[in-house]
Simulated scan of single mutants.
Amino acid sequence: MNQHLPILRVQTARGYPVARDGIVICFFMHRSHGAVAHALWRALQTYRRAILPQALSWYADDNGDWQPLDEKGWKHIREEILERRWPAACHIDLEEHCDAPSGYNFEYDGLWLDAPLFYDQDTTCAVTFTLPTEYMVEHGPAHVRALALELARELPFSFGYASFALVAPDGRWFAAPNTIGALRDRYPGLDIYKLRETSKDIGTNARGAYWLTFLGLPLLGRLGGLEVLRRRLPFPEVSLQTLPPLEGERVLVTLSEWPEAIDTEQHERPSPQLLALGHLLEPHLHEERSNWFYFLNNNDRQDMRRWIRRFCP
Protein backbone atom coordinates (compact mmCIF):
# COMPACT_ATOMS: atom_id res chain seq x y z
CA MET A 1 0.00 0.00 0.00
CA ASN A 2 1.19 3.53 -0.70
CA GLN A 3 1.31 4.56 2.95
CA HIS A 4 4.05 1.96 3.39
CA LEU A 5 6.39 3.91 1.11
CA PRO A 6 8.21 6.30 3.45
CA ILE A 7 9.48 9.77 2.62
CA LEU A 8 13.28 9.66 2.78
CA ARG A 9 15.68 12.58 2.45
CA VAL A 10 19.39 11.93 3.02
CA GLN A 11 21.91 14.66 3.82
CA THR A 12 25.59 14.72 4.66
CA ALA A 13 26.73 15.70 8.13
CA ARG A 14 26.99 19.28 6.85
CA GLY A 15 23.44 19.27 5.54
CA TYR A 16 24.11 18.75 1.83
CA PRO A 17 21.34 16.65 0.21
CA VAL A 18 22.59 13.49 -1.55
CA ALA A 19 19.66 11.07 -1.93
CA ARG A 20 15.89 10.75 -1.74
CA ASP A 21 13.13 8.15 -2.01
CA GLY A 22 11.76 7.15 -5.38
CA ILE A 23 11.17 4.35 -7.85
CA VAL A 24 14.01 2.96 -9.94
CA ILE A 25 13.47 1.06 -13.19
CA CYS A 26 16.68 -0.65 -14.22
CA PHE A 27 17.80 -2.93 -17.07
CA PHE A 28 21.02 -4.83 -17.73
CA MET A 29 21.76 -5.73 -21.35
CA HIS A 30 24.49 -8.20 -22.25
CA ARG A 31 25.02 -6.45 -25.58
CA SER A 32 27.46 -3.87 -26.92
CA HIS A 33 26.46 -0.22 -27.01
CA GLY A 34 26.06 -0.27 -30.79
CA ALA A 35 23.51 -3.07 -30.53
CA VAL A 36 21.34 -1.25 -27.99
CA ALA A 37 21.76 2.43 -28.95
CA HIS A 38 18.62 2.86 -31.07
CA ALA A 39 16.43 0.90 -28.66
CA LEU A 40 17.86 2.97 -25.79
CA TRP A 41 17.04 6.23 -27.57
CA ARG A 42 13.44 5.08 -28.16
CA ALA A 43 13.12 4.10 -24.50
CA LEU A 44 14.42 7.51 -23.44
CA GLN A 45 11.73 9.17 -25.57
CA THR A 46 9.10 6.95 -23.93
CA TYR A 47 10.34 8.05 -20.52
CA ARG A 48 10.30 11.72 -21.55
CA ARG A 49 6.68 11.46 -22.71
CA ALA A 50 5.65 9.97 -19.37
CA ILE A 51 7.12 12.71 -17.17
CA LEU A 52 6.79 16.49 -16.93
CA PRO A 53 8.27 18.39 -19.91
CA GLN A 54 11.03 20.00 -17.81
CA ALA A 55 11.61 17.08 -15.45
CA LEU A 56 14.99 16.48 -17.11
CA SER A 57 16.77 19.84 -17.19
CA TRP A 58 20.52 19.14 -16.90
CA TYR A 59 23.15 16.78 -18.24
CA ALA A 60 26.72 16.06 -17.20
CA ASP A 61 29.23 16.73 -19.99
CA ASP A 62 32.44 14.78 -20.62
CA ASN A 63 34.21 16.82 -17.93
CA GLY A 64 31.49 16.20 -15.35
CA ASP A 65 30.24 19.80 -15.56
CA TRP A 66 26.50 20.47 -15.65
CA GLN A 67 25.00 21.87 -18.83
CA PRO A 68 21.37 22.90 -19.52
CA LEU A 69 19.32 20.26 -21.30
CA ASP A 70 17.87 22.64 -23.86
CA GLU A 71 17.45 22.00 -27.59
CA LYS A 72 21.22 22.13 -28.06
CA GLY A 73 21.70 19.81 -25.11
CA TRP A 74 19.24 17.23 -26.47
CA LYS A 75 21.02 17.31 -29.82
CA HIS A 76 24.26 16.55 -27.99
CA ILE A 77 22.69 13.64 -26.06
CA ARG A 78 21.22 12.18 -29.24
CA GLU A 79 24.62 12.28 -30.91
CA GLU A 80 26.26 10.75 -27.84
CA ILE A 81 23.88 7.79 -27.89
CA LEU A 82 23.37 7.20 -31.61
CA GLU A 83 26.70 8.29 -33.06
CA ARG A 84 29.16 7.16 -30.40
CA ARG A 85 31.98 5.43 -32.26
CA TRP A 86 33.65 2.18 -31.32
CA PRO A 87 35.41 1.73 -28.90
CA ALA A 88 34.54 4.88 -26.91
CA ALA A 89 32.29 4.28 -23.89
CA CYS A 90 28.98 6.14 -23.61
CA HIS A 91 28.05 7.50 -20.20
CA ILE A 92 24.88 9.60 -19.90
CA ASP A 93 23.50 11.31 -16.78
CA LEU A 94 20.34 13.42 -17.13
CA GLU A 95 18.79 14.96 -14.02
CA GLU A 96 16.00 17.18 -12.83
CA HIS A 97 18.28 19.30 -10.66
CA CYS A 98 22.04 19.73 -10.76
CA ASP A 99 22.40 20.79 -7.12
CA ALA A 100 20.07 18.38 -5.28
CA PRO A 101 18.91 14.74 -5.49
CA SER A 102 16.68 14.36 -8.52
CA GLY A 103 13.39 12.51 -8.44
CA TYR A 104 13.72 12.21 -12.21
CA ASN A 105 16.98 10.81 -13.51
CA PHE A 106 18.20 8.89 -16.55
CA GLU A 107 21.53 7.13 -16.17
CA TYR A 108 23.18 4.99 -18.83
CA ASP A 109 26.47 3.15 -18.90
CA GLY A 110 27.22 1.87 -22.40
CA LEU A 111 30.31 -0.08 -23.45
CA TRP A 112 31.53 -1.89 -26.52
CA LEU A 113 31.91 -5.39 -25.15
CA ASP A 114 34.20 -6.40 -28.00
CA ALA A 115 36.59 -3.46 -27.48
CA PRO A 116 40.24 -4.47 -26.90
CA LEU A 117 40.31 -2.97 -23.43
CA PHE A 118 39.62 -4.52 -20.05
CA TYR A 119 36.00 -5.65 -20.40
CA ASP A 120 35.30 -9.28 -19.61
CA GLN A 121 32.44 -11.66 -20.36
CA ASP A 122 30.36 -10.39 -17.43
CA THR A 123 30.31 -6.73 -18.49
CA THR A 124 26.96 -5.29 -19.60
CA CYS A 125 25.36 -2.09 -20.79
CA ALA A 126 22.91 -0.80 -18.19
CA VAL A 127 20.30 1.92 -17.77
CA THR A 128 18.12 3.36 -15.02
CA PHE A 129 15.02 5.53 -15.19
CA THR A 130 13.81 6.99 -11.90
CA LEU A 131 10.59 8.55 -10.66
CA PRO A 132 9.84 10.35 -7.39
CA THR A 133 7.59 8.38 -5.06
CA GLU A 134 5.01 11.15 -5.46
CA TYR A 135 4.67 10.18 -9.12
CA MET A 136 3.54 6.69 -8.12
CA VAL A 137 1.19 8.02 -5.44
CA GLU A 138 -0.37 10.45 -7.94
CA HIS A 139 -0.65 8.12 -10.94
CA GLY A 140 -0.91 4.77 -9.17
CA PRO A 141 1.26 1.65 -9.31
CA ALA A 142 -0.54 0.28 -12.39
CA HIS A 143 0.59 3.34 -14.37
CA VAL A 144 4.21 2.90 -13.24
CA ARG A 145 4.07 -0.79 -14.09
CA ALA A 146 2.74 0.04 -17.57
CA LEU A 147 5.58 2.53 -18.07
CA ALA A 148 8.19 -0.03 -16.95
CA LEU A 149 6.66 -2.57 -19.34
CA GLU A 150 6.74 -0.08 -22.23
CA LEU A 151 10.41 0.64 -21.54
CA ALA A 152 11.20 -3.06 -21.31
CA ARG A 153 9.64 -3.78 -24.69
CA GLU A 154 12.27 -1.57 -26.33
CA LEU A 155 15.32 -3.01 -24.60
CA PRO A 156 17.17 -6.33 -25.16
CA PHE A 157 17.58 -6.99 -21.44
CA SER A 158 18.85 -10.12 -19.76
CA PHE A 159 17.63 -8.88 -16.36
CA GLY A 160 15.71 -5.87 -15.14
CA TYR A 161 13.63 -4.67 -12.24
CA ALA A 162 11.54 -1.86 -10.74
CA SER A 163 11.65 -1.15 -7.03
CA PHE A 164 11.18 1.36 -4.26
CA ALA A 165 14.67 2.80 -4.02
CA LEU A 166 17.07 5.37 -2.71
CA VAL A 167 17.54 7.59 -5.76
CA ALA A 168 21.09 8.92 -5.95
CA PRO A 169 22.68 8.98 -9.41
CA ASP A 170 26.21 7.59 -9.55
CA GLY A 171 25.87 6.38 -5.97
CA ARG A 172 26.12 9.83 -4.36
CA TRP A 173 24.58 8.37 -1.20
CA PHE A 174 28.14 7.26 -0.27
CA ALA A 175 28.66 10.74 1.25
CA ALA A 176 26.29 9.83 4.12
CA PRO A 177 27.32 6.26 5.03
CA ASN A 178 25.86 6.11 8.53
CA THR A 179 22.42 7.28 7.40
CA ILE A 180 22.44 4.92 4.42
CA GLY A 181 23.47 1.98 6.57
CA ALA A 182 20.61 2.68 8.97
CA LEU A 183 18.07 2.94 6.14
CA ARG A 184 19.38 -0.27 4.57
CA ASP A 185 18.85 -2.12 7.85
CA ARG A 186 15.42 -0.62 8.53
CA TYR A 187 13.95 -1.09 5.03
CA PRO A 188 15.01 -4.33 3.33
CA GLY A 189 12.73 -3.43 0.41
CA LEU A 190 14.72 -0.25 -0.27
CA ASP A 191 16.96 -0.76 -3.29
CA ILE A 192 20.40 0.84 -3.08
CA TYR A 193 22.19 0.80 -6.39
CA LYS A 194 25.36 1.96 -8.16
CA LEU A 195 24.74 1.30 -11.82
CA ARG A 196 28.26 1.58 -13.19
CA GLU A 197 29.76 -0.81 -10.66
CA THR A 198 27.09 -3.51 -10.96
CA SER A 199 27.04 -3.34 -14.76
CA LYS A 200 30.72 -4.35 -14.81
CA ASP A 201 30.13 -7.83 -13.45
CA ILE A 202 26.47 -8.86 -13.42
CA GLY A 203 26.69 -10.63 -16.78
CA THR A 204 23.43 -12.49 -17.42
CA ASN A 205 22.71 -13.06 -13.73
CA ALA A 206 20.04 -11.49 -11.51
CA ARG A 207 20.53 -8.69 -9.01
CA GLY A 208 17.72 -9.87 -6.76
CA ALA A 209 13.97 -10.27 -6.32
CA TYR A 210 11.90 -7.11 -6.76
CA TRP A 211 8.36 -5.73 -7.03
CA LEU A 212 8.72 -5.97 -10.82
CA THR A 213 11.32 -8.46 -12.05
CA PHE A 214 12.13 -8.73 -15.76
CA LEU A 215 13.70 -11.99 -16.90
CA GLY A 216 15.24 -12.43 -20.35
CA LEU A 217 17.45 -14.99 -22.00
CA PRO A 218 19.61 -16.79 -21.09
CA LEU A 219 18.57 -16.30 -17.44
CA LEU A 220 14.95 -17.26 -18.05
CA GLY A 221 16.10 -20.51 -19.64
CA ARG A 222 18.39 -21.32 -16.72
CA LEU A 223 15.41 -20.85 -14.39
CA GLY A 224 13.42 -23.40 -16.36
CA GLY A 225 11.17 -21.07 -18.35
CA LEU A 226 7.63 -19.83 -17.86
CA GLU A 227 6.18 -23.14 -16.64
CA VAL A 228 8.68 -23.36 -13.79
CA LEU A 229 7.89 -19.78 -12.80
CA ARG A 230 4.18 -20.60 -12.68
CA ARG A 231 4.83 -23.67 -10.55
CA ARG A 232 7.24 -21.96 -8.16
CA LEU A 233 5.20 -18.76 -7.73
CA PRO A 234 1.64 -20.05 -7.10
CA PHE A 235 0.40 -16.91 -5.34
CA PRO A 236 -2.79 -15.02 -6.21
CA GLU A 237 -0.93 -11.70 -6.01
CA VAL A 238 1.65 -12.77 -8.61
CA SER A 239 1.19 -12.20 -12.34
CA LEU A 240 3.43 -13.41 -15.17
CA GLN A 241 3.39 -11.60 -18.49
CA THR A 242 5.39 -12.37 -21.60
CA LEU A 243 6.74 -9.50 -23.68
CA PRO A 244 6.20 -9.33 -27.44
CA PRO A 245 7.55 -9.75 -30.02
CA LEU A 246 9.68 -12.52 -28.49
CA GLU A 247 7.01 -14.05 -26.26
CA GLY A 248 8.38 -16.88 -24.19
CA GLU A 249 11.86 -15.35 -24.20
CA ARG A 250 11.13 -12.38 -21.92
CA VAL A 251 8.85 -12.33 -18.88
CA LEU A 252 7.69 -9.74 -16.37
CA VAL A 253 7.04 -11.08 -12.86
CA THR A 254 4.79 -8.75 -10.83
CA LEU A 255 4.71 -9.68 -7.14
CA SER A 256 2.09 -7.30 -5.76
CA GLU A 257 0.08 -4.16 -6.44
CA TRP A 258 2.56 -1.88 -4.66
CA PRO A 259 6.29 -2.29 -4.00
CA GLU A 260 7.26 -3.29 -0.48
CA ALA A 261 9.45 -1.07 1.71
CA ILE A 262 9.26 -3.57 4.63
CA ASP A 263 9.68 -1.34 7.69
CA THR A 264 11.31 -3.58 10.29
CA GLU A 265 10.62 -1.00 13.03
CA GLN A 266 6.92 -1.64 12.35
CA HIS A 267 7.62 -5.41 12.43
CA GLU A 268 6.83 -5.79 8.73
CA ARG A 269 8.16 -8.85 6.93
CA PRO A 270 8.78 -9.68 3.29
CA SER A 271 5.80 -11.21 1.51
CA PRO A 272 5.82 -14.97 0.84
CA GLN A 273 5.96 -14.35 -2.92
CA LEU A 274 9.01 -12.08 -2.55
CA LEU A 275 10.81 -14.79 -0.57
CA ALA A 276 9.76 -17.45 -3.08
CA LEU A 277 11.19 -15.44 -5.99
CA GLY A 278 14.34 -14.75 -4.01
CA HIS A 279 14.78 -18.47 -3.37
CA LEU A 280 14.25 -19.26 -7.06
CA LEU A 281 16.82 -16.66 -8.15
CA GLU A 282 19.43 -17.42 -5.48
CA PRO A 283 21.62 -19.75 -7.59
CA HIS A 284 21.77 -17.06 -10.27
CA LEU A 285 22.48 -13.96 -8.18
CA HIS A 286 25.58 -12.02 -9.14
CA GLU A 287 28.60 -11.44 -6.93
CA GLU A 288 29.82 -7.85 -6.76
CA ARG A 289 33.56 -7.78 -7.41
CA SER A 290 34.12 -4.26 -6.08
CA ASN A 291 32.95 -3.50 -2.58
CA TRP A 292 31.13 -0.26 -3.39
CA PHE A 293 29.00 -0.75 -0.28
CA TYR A 294 31.99 0.39 1.73
CA PHE A 295 29.76 1.49 4.60
CA LEU A 296 28.74 -2.12 5.14
CA ASN A 297 30.61 -3.25 8.18
CA ASN A 298 34.05 -1.91 7.28
CA ASN A 299 34.35 -3.50 3.85
CA ASP A 300 32.97 -6.85 5.01
CA ARG A 301 32.23 -8.53 1.67
CA GLN A 302 30.19 -11.23 3.40
CA ASP A 303 27.91 -8.53 4.78
CA MET A 304 27.46 -7.24 1.25
CA ARG A 305 26.70 -10.76 0.05
CA ARG A 306 24.10 -11.18 2.78
CA TRP A 307 22.38 -7.95 1.74
CA ILE A 308 22.15 -9.07 -1.89
CA ARG A 309 20.61 -12.35 -0.64
CA ARG A 310 18.33 -10.78 1.94
CA PHE A 311 15.22 -12.35 0.34
CA CYS A 312 16.68 -15.82 0.01
CA PRO A 313 15.18 -17.88 2.86
Score class of each variant (00 low, 15 high):
17 P>E: 12
17 P>H: 12
18 V>N: 02
19 A>I: 08
20 R>D: 04
20 R>A: 09
21 D>S: 12
23 I>K: 01
26 C>W: 00
27 F>G: 03
28 F>K: 05
28 F>G: 02
30 H>Q: 12
32 S>N: 06
32 S>G: 13
33 H>M: 01
34 G>S: 08
35 A>T: 10
35 A>S: 15
35 A>W: 02
36 V>P: 00
37 A>G: 04
38 H>P: 05
38 H>C: 11
39 A>I: 03
40 L>V: 10
40 L>Q: 04
41 W>Y: 11
43 A>H: 07
44 L>H: 05
44 L>I: 15
45 Q>P: 05
47 Y>T: 08
48 R>E: 10
49 R>Y: 11
49 R>H: 14
50 A>W: 05
50 A>I: 02
50 A>F: 04
51 I>N: 00
52 L>I: 02
53 P>V: 03
55 A>W: 06
55 A>Q: 07
55 A>E: 07
55 A>S: 13
56 L>T: 04
56 L>V: 06
57 S>P: 01
58 W>L: 01
59 Y>F: 12
60 A>W: 05
62 D>N: 10
64 G>C: 09
64 G>R: 05
65 D>Q: 15
66 W>A: 11
67 Q>Y: 03
69 L>M: 10
69 L>C: 02
69 L>W: 03
71 E>K: 14
72 K>Q: 15
74 W>I: 11
75 K>L: 07
75 K>A: 13
75 K>C: 13
76 H>N: 13
76 H>Y: 14
76 H>P: 00
78 R>L: 01
79 E>S: 13
80 E>G: 09
81 I>D: 01
82 L>R: 09
83 E>I: 01
83 E>A: 13
85 R>G: 10
86 W>I: 01
86 W>Q: 06
88 A>Q: 13
88 A>E: 11
89 A>L: 04
89 A>C: 05
90 C>K: 01
91 H>K: 13
92 I>N: 03
92 I>D: 08
92 I>S: 09
94 L>C: 08
94 L>F: 05
95 E>R: 15
96 E>S: 12
96 E>I: 04
97 H>R: 14
98 C>N: 08
98 C>H: 11
98 C>F: 03
99 D>E: 12
101 P>K: 02
101 P>N: 00
101 P>T: 04
104 Y>C: 03
107 E>D: 11
110 G>D: 00
111 L>Q: 10
111 L>R: 11
112 W>R: 00
112 W>Q: 04
113 L>I: 00
114 D>E: 08
115 A>K: 06
115 A>Y: 10
115 A>R: 06
116 P>T: 05
117 L>S: 09
117 L>Q: 07
119 Y>P: 02
119 Y>V: 05
120 D>W: 12
121 Q>W: 12
122 D>R: 04
123 T>I: 06
124 T>M: 00
127 V>Q: 00
128 T>H: 00
128 T>C: 01
129 F>A: 01
129 F>D: 03
129 F>H: 03
131 L>S: 01
132 P>F: 05
135 Y>D: 14
136 M>S: 03
136 M>L: 15
137 V>F: 01
